[in-house]
Amino acid sequence: MKLSNEKSCKHGICEALFELKSLQDFLTESSTKYSGKLLAKLVGVDTIPFILMTKDGLFSHSGEVINHKNGKAESFTSNYFRIESIEKEGCHATISLLHPLDIHGDPPHSPCDVIILKKTTNCIEIDLLSICAIQTVDIELLKREIIIEPKW
């Protein structure tokens, strides 16, 4: 009984992520006869961000980004990802890390401090068999711009 449950769950995650990838591709690639790439323009993002749950809790991974203020590489940890490719048969996926930032551009202390997600080139391969849940996140996090006022 337990075995079959596990199997269907794993299968479900793979299906779900595959669907997400198709949706994401559709957003970025679809072009219609009269409106062209209007859909991509309307949505304004090429990423559907998500978080993953494992048996032990929220899945997280470390990566590196270049800090544009000082030009140095800095490591960060993220729970937010983008799907890059998926291999259904082997239940494997390549996901890239999204860099979460708080309002000051610093690492957020808690999920509610996350104001912006930035795409990065840090990719990892994951075994989908280890994932038990997936949750999409607000795409606004990728579009957000912040102005700091007043300007002195």
Partner: peptide
């Protein structure tokens, strides 16, 4: 006053 910053979303 220069310490004060308003963070705005356009």
């Amino acid at each position: 006053a220069q310490e004060i910053k308003f963070y705005l979303e356009p």
